[in-house]
Nucleic acid binder design. Structure first.
Length: 758
DNA sequence: GAAGCACTACTTTTT
DNA sequence: GTAGTGCTTC
């Protein structure tokens, strides 16, 4: 029975078979963290532990799915399927479906993703008549989310002197009111946001001892992956669940903690020994993933951080190739050089596309990479960015599903009622929502009977509204009768959404129809597999309701399709955590980009940024290439950039001489996205703006940049008159800082910005 | 009430 | 460069 344990090294083995009591595993990158978790689950099962008694919490759905597959393979028994294995959010969502009624939630509650939740915040800010520049929905959402992650309720928020004074000095004292009203609205819509899934689980376990006891009895064995990235709420929930059995195993690496910005607390790792004084600690330090050079570079970088748990990551692997360094002239140039390097490597060594990954700090950087890869016909797949599930047409369709299942979902009403246009406009909706608010009831109630809530509407509008509610009710009936796919198809057609986009008859419209069909396909797949893939033991018939229970928690990474297998991977470093690739390119290593400009002011932020770099470095198995550009198109402007400080933190002996921007001839001529054939679609819109700063103003005559002096009065075609504050750089890189009246300082690259001396 | 156009803010990272 | 918002016109 223990045969599979032979695959483990001594430490891994020890950590795996220590199945009882509190255990912490600190593992360096590539040291087999996931392996230990997987084998622990398999080991428990092989010892006869009931799979229903095991809870394994991961960070992504993908990690959970893969672990489940591997466990089943290891023990050769499908019983492994019954382990509760999933993300914190999905497992807690499931618990709340079952027991959330104790807190007053129906089991068909809606889950609002960050988009939906931000929409609601924005709406409230507007209703409260606040300035949405001061009270930016982003900022307010972030504050609310941070409060929830720390289990601070609206009441506690409003009574916490520290929080209040922080908000006051940010001149946003009303956030406490927004928070309060936001939560009331969510509750009234029978909806929870991501943070509520944690917060409410915590409340459930705190207020209902019997329920807590039920789950303590159920989850005799608890395993937590990526423990360094848990927040306070997650920490306390786990602690409660484990309080009885104390069979808890957490696995993590403080050096890979990269989610402090959303409330993750490395302190949870340090606290473990206080909570469980007789815990066993295992350290996995042998890296099996990367070459010596890569491990060495990563170790060097991380020593620049002060806060860290001491450990020595080492490897027995080959020394490997030195780290490549690419210096590009611009972001587009960087794309070309990286794509060429991939092309060369691939051809010389006969490698598949999937051996390569390009990692970046921000999603916006993918564009230049995409264009370059497309030029060379290298297939690629982008993860993240504008995710499939956040596209408008997908949100629209999902909103219909949500409303069908949960009529109280106000956001879903707002999204669907006039898409496609039904002649129910803003004014009408305002009246209805005011009435709902005044009578303290749901929008749906009012829609069903506007007269009894004294809403003044003409008969025509009333007919339109009742047609809409009848439609939604008919959908609800369909959902009862049909499986998820049939019901979804019916809704897509009968709602008129599909027709609306089809009739647009534009490339975008066609694309949107295709996307909706893709969603329907996903639902079909779900229906065919029944609820089996549904990360748990909910045995169902594959109804639309079941599909919707998980969909808001899905991300792009969760859609692995056959045809996507042999492609170069493009993703942010955050998304790459936990993954590995033979050949890795880390691009955009520039000051203010990586490290990000918003992360260079405090040590804590900078260290998180450095850990992010550490994560990036350690994704590589065989070869690593770093790159940076000397200028970059950002905020619709060219900016000059400097190489990242992180580059200096790697011993230069490990790095190859920079591969120069060797783009042959054609000195400064930029290929400027004129790739033939690739983008007919955007051509129409692009041709207007293509003449960046030049052609639009053919009458505007610029002065020779060389003639400009500090202090001169100049005029810009767009910004008007201003005064040169400073000049720097030489020749084509000459840059001016100009103060424009009523606009402020602008940094202009004189190669592009046309200035005329007044 | 709907469609079209111009303006603005945004880009850190995600369940 | 983009998406969302708000203004204007029909």
């Amino acid at each position: 029975m223990e045969s599979f344990l032979e695959h483990l090294n001594k430490e891994q083995h020890a950590a795996t078979v220590q199945s009882e009591g509190p255990v912490m595993v600190i593992a360096g990158a590539g040291a087999g963290k996931t392996r230990v978790l997987t084998y622990r689950v398999a080991y428990l099962l092989s010892k006869g532990v009931d799979p229903f008694n095991i809870l394994a919490l991961t960070f992504t759905n993908k990690a959970a799915r893969e672990m489940k597959e591997r466990v089943i393979n290891l023990i050769g028994d499908a019983e492994g399927r019954n382990v509760w294995m999933g993300t914190f959010h999905s497992i807690f969502a499931k618990i709340l479906r079952i027991d959330g009624h104790l807190l007053g939630y129906p089991s068909n509650y809606s889950i609002y993703d960050s988009d939906d939740s931000k929409r609601l915040v924005r709406l409230i800010i507007k209703e409260m008549d606040l300035d949405n520049k001061l009270y930016s929905p982003n900022y307010v959402s972030h504050r609310i989310s941070a409060a929830k992650s720390n289990l601070v309720s609206p009441v506690e928020y409003a009574n916490d002197p520290d929080i209040l004074s922080a908000d006051e000095s940010a001149r946003k004292p009303l956030i406490k009111d927004i928070y309060k009203s936001y939560n009331e609205r969510l509750k009234r819509a029978d909806a929870m946001d991501f943070d509520d899934l944690l917060f409410n689980t915590f409340l459930l376990f705190s207020q209902f001892g019997e329920t807590l006891y039920k789950y303590q009895q159920k989850f005799r064995y608890i395993l937590v992956d990526e423990y360094q990235d848990t927040n306070h709420a997650q920490y306390l929930i786990i602690k409660k669940l484990a309080a009885n059995s104390e069979n808890i195993c957490v696995v993590g690496d403080d050096a890979q903690s990269i989610y402090a910005f959303r409330g993750a607390n490395i302190g949870n790792m340090l606290n473990f020994k206080n909570d469980y004084p007789d815990y066993k600690l295992f350290k996995l330090e042998q890296n099996y993933r990367s070459t010596k050079i890569i491990v060495e570079a990563a170790n060097q970088v991380i020593t620049y951080n002060k806060d860290q748990i001491k450990k020595t990551v080492w490897t027995d692997n080959d020394r490997g190739a030195s780290i490549g360094l690419i210096r590009a002239r611009s972001d587009n140039d960087e794309g070309d050089l990286v794509a060429n390097a991939i092309f060369e490597k691939k051809m010389n060594n006969q490698l598949p596309n999937y051996a390569f990954a390009i990692l970046y700090r921000t999603n916006a950087q993918s564009r230049s990479m995409e264009e370059a890869l497309r030029k060379l016909n290298i297939p690629y797949r982008i993860y993240g960015g504008l995710s499939f599930y956040s596209r408008k047409e997908i949100k629209d369709l999902l909103a219909y599903f949500r409303l069908t299942i949960n009529h109280n979902d106000e956001d879903a009403v707002q999204r669907t009622i006039n898409t496609p246009a039904r002649g129910i406009g803003k004014t009408t909706m305002e009246k209805l929502s005011v009435a709902a608010h005044e009578h303290n009831t749901t929008l749906w109630e009012v829609l069903n009977n506007p007269l009894s809530f004294q809403v003044q509407l003409n008969t025509g509008t009333r007919t339109k509204i009742s047609a809409f509610t009848t439609l939604i009710k008919s959908f609800a009936a369909e959902v009862q009768k049909k499986d998820a796919f049939e019901a979804a198809k019916h809704i897509a057609n009968a709602s008129g959404l599909l027709r609306m986009y089809r009739e647009e008859d534009t490339p975008e419209g066609i694309n949107r129809v295709e996307n909706m069909e893709e969603l329907l396909n996903a639902i079909k797949e779900f229906t065919e597999k029944g609820a089996e893939q549904n990360a748990g033991d909910l045995q169902g018939q594959g109804s639309l309701e079941e599909f919707m229970q998980n969909v808001s928690l899905l991300t792009d990474t969760d859609n692995d399709k056959e045809e996507d297998r042999d492609k170069v991977t493009l993703m942010t470093i955050h998304a790459a955590k936990g993954l590995e690739f033979p050949y890795v390119f880390i691009v955009g290593l520039e000051e203010n980009l990586f490290p990000s400009i918003q992360a260079i002011n405090t040590r804590a932020d900078l260290e998180e940024e450095r850990r992010l770099f550490y994560v990036a470095l350690t994704r590589a198995e065989k070869m690593l290439t770093l790159s940076y550009a000397e200028s970059r198109f950002r905020w619709g402007q060219f900016t000059l950039t400097e190489p990242s400080r992180f580059l200096d933190e790697i011993d230069e002996q490990l790095i190859d001489k920079p591969r120069k921007a060797a783009t042959q001839k054609a000195g400064g001529k930029r290929a400027e996205s004129q790739s033939p054939g690739s983008n007919y679609r955007s051509l129409k819109t692009k041709s207007h703006t293509a003449g960046k700063g030049g052609t639009n103003h053919s009458t505007f005559e610029a002065s020779d940049p060389a003639a400009l002096q500090t202090g001169m009065e100049v005029e810009h075609s767009k910004f008007g008159k201003g005064k040169i504050i400073a000049l720097e750089g030489q020749g084509p890189n000459k840059k001016a800082t100009v103060f424009f009246n009523g606009i402020g300082n602008k940094n202009l690259l004189l190669r592009f910005a046309k200035l005329r001396i007044v």
